[in-house]
Each structure stands twice: as C-alpha cells, then as structure tokens.
Computed example of a mutant assay.
Amino acid sequence: MKLNYVISDSIQSALNEIIETAYRSIPNQFVPVYYVNQLIGSVSASCFSHMKELFNQDDNDFSFIQINNDSILLSTSSSYDLSLELRILAEFLRSKGVFSHWRNEQFSFLREDAHEIFRLERAAFRGFGLMSTAVHINGFTRDGSIWLATRSDSKSVDPGLIDNMTAGGINAIETVQSCAERELWEEAGVVSNQLNNLFPAGLIEVRRFLPPHEIHHEKIFTFDLFVDENWTPINHDGEVQSFQKHGIEEVIDFILSEKMTQDAAVVTADFILRNLKI
C-alpha cells in the first residue's frame, strides 16, 4: 500500500541527508580488527592498550587471536573455539570498564554467506566495532498515520527517546523473520493474524562513533506493518513506556528535531521517502 505523502523539496532533501549520513567514518585513532584478511571492526586506543596488557601476561593462552603493533588479527577456526577466546577477552575488557551496557545476550557475526564466524556478548559488538544486525518495523494505518514508541526511561541506551513502533537486535539463535515476529509481540502486542500485513521493506547500514570507546555498526532489516485504524499497540516487555500515533508532519518534526533515536530517524525517513506521491 503506497501512502502518497506530499512534502516539500527542502524536507525531502533533509530526510535524504539523514539517510546518506547514517554511515560515518571511524576516528583515526581506532585500531583495526581483521578476520584473516577482512576488516571487520575496530577498537579504541584505550581498549587496545588493555588488550596488550592481557596478551603480555605469561599465562595467556590465545591461539586464534593475535595482537600486533597496530592491528588485531582473528584466525580461521571453529566458531566455538574463536567464540570462547573472544568471550575471555571481552570479559577481561569488561572488568577494566571498557565495555558498557552488558546484556548477557549473544549476537552472531556472520560471513556474507550467512555462516557464523563467531558469537559474542552483544555489548562487545560495539566495543569491538563489529557489525550487528537488527530489525525495525514501521507501523502505519490506511490514512498514513505512523505508530511510534517512546522508549522506557530504564533503557540503558537512548532512554526516553522516540523509536519505531518495534525495533530490536537479532540474537544468535534467531532469523530475521523470527526476530521481527518476536519483537512485534513483545514490544507491541502484534498477534499472528496481523503478520499477514507485515512486509519486508529494505536494508539500511548505519555506523557511528559512540564516545569514548565504542562504534555502533548495524545492518537494519526494515519492515512495514499495515495495522487497523482502531488497533492500539500493547507493550509486554517493559521496554516501551508509551505508544503514540502521529500524522506525517509531526513525525517529520520528531526526525528533524532529533527527538528520535538516530536509527529510528533513518528508518522512518526511509519509510516516508518510499511513500511519496509521484
């Protein structure tokens, strides 16, 4: 269903700029992380210093992680063995206060063919600058209104900011579709018969520096969910404090006034631009 929004050229340009600048460069002082010959992440100078401290200990027993003068190299091994060594390293860095927002949730780092190279604590993905994956779902009605969520004030990341109706990271045992369905139920109370109106919309890659130590690098699978005008989302997991249904003008104001999370702003801007009247 195309909504045929009408907005000015200047607003279109502003929304396009938000999307085009969502993937940003890494600070020069960050140290690259390679898997064999592939650049997969980067760590801050302070994080790298702590890593060298661990690897200089006589009793370190790392077989698949190598620390050089100016880089970190992960070697080919089984996912289990490399995951184990990375977990030991991540726990050490956590003890040094480098990694924040520890979740006790595993994410997978995948090859291009979707095979798992390793899995690691979610918080360590940002600490190592690794690309994670997530789903974001735009909930909308026939008249073009968009459902948005206000994040709980207890959230460790972006508390109280406006978010997409549903959004969440894809953990190590999920597919894109199963994550979308789980998040829709947990965050918005979407039931199975509503999933017939859930459609994949695209893929957006974002990357930005999060001071002082982290890189947020994520591949976002976007979905659109058409909902009945009389339906209201109901949160089940405590991560949303409220839902609001807004017209297009209000939503654009939220995006441009930076009241939304940066990822949600990009996803929502993309939704609006895909639904412009031609």
Rank of each mutant, 00 (worst) to 15 (best):
I19K: 08
D61C: 12
L195Y: 10
R126T: 09
N193T: 11
E258C: 04
G168F: 07
S63K: 12
V240C: 01
D253Y: 04
H213I: 06
K259S: 14
E112P: 02
D143T: 09
E17N: 08
V266T: 11
L225V: 10
H217W: 00
I18L: 09
T150W: 01
R182I: 07
E20H: 03
D237L: 11
E239I: 10
D113I: 09
N235T: 12
S8E: 12
N164Q: 10
R94T: 08
I67Q: 10
P32Q: 03
F30Y: 15
D263E: 14
D158H: 08
E186C: 09
K155C: 13
R111F: 09
V227N: 03
H236K: 14
T261Y: 04
A149W: 06
Q241F: 03
H246C: 12
T175F: 08
I40L: 03
D143W: 06
V176C: 01
F92R: 10
F107W: 10
I137Y: 01
Q244A: 14
E183N: 12
H115P: 00
D237T: 11
S156M: 13
S10F: 09
F243L: 08
S145Y: 06
D70H: 15
D153Q: 15
T141Q: 12
S192Y: 08
F118A: 04
R207I: 02
D113A: 05
S132A: 12
S10Q: 10
H136L: 08
L256A: 07
L74E: 02
S46Y: 10
L93E: 06
A134Q: 04
E214Q: 11
N4R: 02
A201W: 01
K155W: 01
Q244R: 15
T133R: 12
F128D: 00
I65K: 07
E239P: 00
T232E: 14
E20V: 03
W185Y: 15
M51P: 03
V266D: 00
V227C: 09
F140Y: 15
P32E: 03
T232F: 07
N164M: 13
I252P: 03
Y5G: 04
P32Y: 05
R126C: 09
H115W: 01
V33W: 05
L73K: 15
D158R: 08
I278G: 09
N68E: 15
H115N: 14
E214K: 07
V36I: 12
L225M: 06
L148R: 00
W231S: 03
R151N: 02
Y5N: 09
N37L: 06
G144H: 00
L39F: 06
M165D: 02
R274V: 04
V31D: 02
C179V: 02
N56V: 14
H101K: 15
V267Q: 04
K219H: 02
A14S: 13
S132G: 13
N4H: 13
V227E: 05
K245Y: 07
W231E: 08
T222A: 07
V206D: 00
Q241R: 15
A90F: 10
S192E: 11
A22C: 14
T21H: 08
R182A: 13
V98E: 08
F118M: 06
I26V: 15
K52G: 03
D263Q: 13
T150P: 00
N164I: 01
I7T: 07
D9W: 01
S100H: 13
E249S: 13
K96E: 06
E229L: 09
D270Y: 07
